[in-house]
C-alpha cells in the first residue's frame, strides 16, 4: 500500500500535499480501494472555500457513496476538471492525477492536527 511520507492524512482517508501556501487534496490509495470503481465525483463547480472537517462533496462508487471532508480551511484555487469525464483516475492514480481540489490555506496550524504517514498506516492497520 502506497502511503507517501510527504503527505498529511485525515481519519477519513483524505490526504493533503502542501507546497508553499497551497494545499492539494485527494483521497488515499486505501480509500479508493475500499470504495472500488469511482464513477462520479460530485463537487460543486462553484465551490469557493473549504472548512476543516466540513463536507465539500461526495464520491460515488458502484457499490457505495462517501462524503468528502476537508482536511483544512482555505480558499479554493482550483478544482480537478479532469475528474468530470474520468473519475476512474482516482482509482488509477490517487496521489497524482486523481487529486480533487487545491486550496490556499487560511490557517496553516490546522495541519498539525492531521496524521503523518506513520499514524495513518496505523489507522488502516498496515
Amino acid at each position: 500500500m502506497n502511503i507517501p511520507s510527504d503527505l498529511k492524512y485525515t481519519n477519513d482517508h483524505e490526504w493533503i500535499r502542501v507546497e508553499g501556501n497551497i494545499g492539494t487534496i485527494g483521497i488515499t490509495e486505501y480509500a479508493q480501494g475500499e470504495l472500488g470503481d469511482v464513477v462520479f465525483v460530485d463537487i460543486d463547480p462553484n465551490l469557493s472555500s473549504l472548512t476543516a472537517g466540513a463536507n465539500f462533496g461526495t464520491i460515488e462508487a458502484v457499490k457505495t457513496v462517501s462524503e468528502l471532508l476537508a482536511p483544512v480551511s482555505g480558499k479554493v484555487v482550483e478544482l480537478n476538471s479532469k475528474l468530470t469525464d474520468s473519475p476512474e483516475t482516482i482509482n488509477a492514480d490517487p496521489y497524482g492525477e486523481g487529486w480533487m481540489v487545491k486550496v490556499e490555506l487560511s490557517n496553516p496550524s490546522e495541519l498539525d492536527t492531521l496524521l503523518d504517514s506513520e499514524s495513518y498506516k496505523t489507522l488502516i492497520g498496515q
Binding site: 472500488g36 470503481d37 457499490k63 482509482n91
Partner: peptide, 9 residues
C-alpha cells in the same frame, strides 16, 4: 469475495 479487480470490469 465482493470483488477481485473491479466491479465494472
Amino acid at each position: 469475495p465482493i470483488q477481485y479487480s473491479s466491479i465494472i470490469a
